[in-house]
């Protein structure tokens, strides 16, 4: 099952062990950035299906972006299959191998679209049960100048910036009062699509 979705490079046990070590060592908190993670055909189909989902604009003091319903409710077969994979036991075991986090309870997962002036201000993601945050990017051509970066903080300083590159999976451990991160404001008219959520333990 895993080989149907994940790029073969990420199934090599030696590489998985190295990635696990990186996850634990990365600062300011445990995280991984995995470029070219999914099989090309799978991610192309998902990237093509997601923009057709209904998005709702969400605004609060903390954020401004557009979001789909939780993808477990989608009627699109490509997205449903993909969501079922994210929620499958083999993939959760795989994530445990990568991160050491056993998160086998429910998952949250929704599609997000950020366009010009959208943002998500710094927060730690902590809510009861959230153990592992994930996000992967479905838009091509984003550069640092476009904004929409995922930034990690130590106190008042951004110490890690991740450009939302197509088919890159980001994982990080959710730790209260530690895993402060933001999505910087999108500064261009490009649309930044992603699927993101949490694995619960």
């Amino acid at each position: 099952m895993l080989q149907n979705f994940i790029h073969p490079d990420y199934l090599d046990p030696v590489r998985l062990k190295r990635l696990h070590t990186s996850f634990l060592r990365n600062k300011p908190f445990p995280y991984l950035v995995l470029p070219h993670f999914f099989q090309e055909k799978i991610i192309r189909d998902v990237a093509s299906a997601l923009p057709k989902e209904p998005f709702t604009k969400q605004t609060s003091d903390l954020f401004q972006f557009s979001q789909t319903n939780d993808l477990r409710l989608t009627k699109n077969t490509t997205l449903k299959t993909f969501y079922q994979f994210l929620n499958s036991k083999p993939f959760k075991i795989y994530l445990e191998t990568l991160t050491g986090i056993a998160a086998f309870k429910r998952i949250d997962g929704a599609g997000f679209m950020y366009t010009s002036t959208d943002y998500l201000l710094p927060h730690d993601d902590h809510l009861e049960g959230r153990a592992l945050a994930y996000t992967f990017y479905l838009s091509k051509g984003f550069t640092a100048n476009d904004g929409g970066t995922l930034d990690f903080f130590t106190k008042n300083t951004i110490v890690k910036t991740i450009i939302p590159s197509f088919n890159t999976l980001v994982l990080f451990k959710v730790l209260p009062e530690q895993t402060f991160h933001q999505v910087s404001e999108v500064l261009t008219m490009k649309k930044r699509y992603s699927i993101a959520g949490w694995y619960h333990a």
């Binding site: 003091d61 401004q64 010009s116 002036t117 943002y119 201000l121 904004g147 404001e185 500064l187």
Partner: peptide, 9 residues
């Protein structure tokens, strides 16, 4: 209370 983020425009 809160003050809404000011964007690049």
């Amino acid at each position: 209370s809160f003050v809404q983020y000011i964007n690049h425009t």
